[in-house]
Simulated scan of single mutants.
Amino acid sequence: MSGRLEGRVAAITGAGSGIGRASARLFAAEGARLVLFDKTDAVEETAAMVESAGGRALAMVGDAGEESDVAALVARATDSFGALHVMFANAGITGGVRGGFFDATPEVWAEVLRVNLIGPFLAVKHAAPVIRDCGGGSIVCTASVAGLRSGAGPAQYSASKAGVVNMVQTAAQQLAGTNVRVNAVLPGLTETGMTQPMFDGARAAGKEHKIGQLNPLLRGGRPEEIAHAALFLASDEASYVNGQALAVDGGLSSSHPTSRPPGDPARPTS
């Protein structure tokens, strides 16, 4: 590793599994001291992984959509490490709704928006002033390619992630002159706790080869691949990247695919 976050303090929400856990391990390997945050005790396991690898990490259990908890996360970083330079607002939920657009209730929509959109807003609101006062840094929010157009997730999830894309653009403008950058990373289909049932079901049915078949790489993503994109946006390598939505999706969002045409040379023959 090259120490791209050496001397930095970073907070990561949704750090108990998936993209958050992979990012915690990568950020620590790049030199960051971490405050890890999740709604489950699994965040303690992530912190232990970081510590066993020689990194420094503190764990917090809380609700990413609750303002007092997010404020406490930022305070924990400054109280423990004296600064905050990076906030990765990664926590998110799908809402768990099976079926179509009309199957979700207003209560499901409200909860998804609370965690997925209000959560990143709160992360920006509370982290940005502290990052500014520490000389500047980066806020990264996890959106999704589902926020770009229909077809990549449930309606409430897709709408919340579209909101994140616009929110980071708006926040970047509101923070002009502060040296605080705000960007979003947009994963495509990635194997995480959220998507694990789909991956497991495909494997059990002998259809693993169909996972990710609509993107040009013809596969699903790994949490580590999203983590590397988040690391780039968090680091000085992205010092002139601001207010952007970086898709990491195997090329899915480069088109509007519905199926592979017969005879497509990229289509697997077996």
Score class of each variant (00 low, 15 high):
2 S>L: 05
2 S>Y: 08
15 A>N: 00
17 S>E: 14
19 I>M: 04
22 A>N: 09
23 S>I: 10
24 A>F: 05
26 L>Y: 05
29 A>C: 08
31 G>K: 06
44 E>W: 02
45 E>W: 06
47 A>T: 05
54 G>L: 09
54 G>F: 11
59 A>Q: 02
59 A>N: 00
61 V>Q: 06
61 V>K: 00
62 G>C: 05
65 G>E: 05
68 S>I: 13
69 D>E: 08
82 G>Q: 11
89 A>K: 01
89 A>R: 05
94 T>E: 12
95 G>P: 07
98 R>I: 14
100 G>K: 13
105 T>W: 13
108 V>S: 13
110 A>Q: 15
114 R>V: 13
115 V>F: 05
124 V>K: 10
126 H>M: 09
130 V>E: 03
131 I>W: 08
132 R>H: 14
138 S>V: 03
141 C>A: 15
142 T>W: 00
143 A>K: 03
152 A>C: 08
155 A>Q: 08
162 A>I: 09
170 T>Y: 09
170 T>V: 10
171 A>G: 06
172 A>E: 03
172 A>F: 00
177 G>S: 05
179 N>I: 00
186 L>C: 15
201 G>N: 11
202 A>D: 05
203 R>Q: 12
205 A>K: 05
207 K>L: 00
207 K>G: 03
211 I>M: 08
218 L>Q: 14
220 G>I: 07
229 A>C: 06
235 S>V: 06
237 E>G: 11
238 A>E: 07
239 S>F: 11
242 N>T: 07
244 Q>E: 15
